[in-house]
Design a protein around this nucleic acid. Sequence first.
DNA 1: ACTGTTAATGCAACTGAGTTGCAAATATAA
DNA 2: TTATATTTGCAACTCAGTTGCATTAACAGT
Lengths: 126, 126
Amino acid sequence: MGIIRKTKSVKKILNEFQIESKALSTLDLIHRFEAEFNKTTIYRVLDKLEDDGVLHSFQGKNGVKWYAKCEDCTEHKHSDIHPHFQCLSCGQTDCLDFSIHIPKIPNREVSFSQFLLQGHCENCMA
Amino acid sequence: MGIIRKTKSVKKILNEFQIESKALSTLDLIHRFEAEFNKTTIYRVLDKLEDDGVLHSFQGKNGVKWYAKCEDCTEHKHSDIHPHFQCLSCGQTDCLDFSIHIPKIPNREVSFSQFLLQGHCENCMA
DNA sequence: ACTGTTAATGCAACTGAGTTGCAAATATAA
DNA sequence: TTATATTTGCAACTCAGTTGCATTAACAGT
């Protein structure tokens, strides 16, 4: 499918990713727009933006779904991935711009990968 | 906390991990024992076995929680991890016994990491 | 083996994320 | 401006996971 119409919700949601260069969780977005948009709309818009390749998603801590606008997503295929980092103190989550090479695994065919690093960001380091 | 008593449920659940060397999801275990144990019990036993270091957990596809008995878990600390593999056809999920080195990231302190590979296992490869 | 203590269990009710169907609203092409 | 097809809001629903509490069962001490 994909985004067909530039509706208010699409524009506003995309704007959130524009002004912050980090990842945003579904729940965070639902909360930010709870006065303005129904949660169903948020789920649907995020789904479509991902289908369109505008956003990509990944699982954070506790299986929570995060979205980020990532410029170089199409490059990262097969055995190269870009990892994500989630701060365990403040929760800030973002893409890391290096890639990790996955060694060939005998008798397995790897098509996707997810790499989540958890720890403390610059602000939250002791 | 941790396991204090060797109850029927603890023994039976551990046995499942003994006879299969792969990972099992919470839902799979709840289903396997639905006639025998309450789901609350399954959740609690798995929690405790993880606290005890007998099992370790990780997030699979769609944020589903998986558990596996992993012999060498304590070795894998800081910047070395062992990845997990999930087959997108049959769903079989297990630990991979190699480790991936995580490059130092400036201004971030990494304490945990999760690495999930998805693709096709030996049986499901075209 | 028996008993008392305390952890473990089952149950029912609850929470909260995510989904679905449908009627109303709105973006866009003509 | 209008027609039409997409998008939205709403309400109801599903389902994984949690909680409180009364009952059951493991096990240490005798």
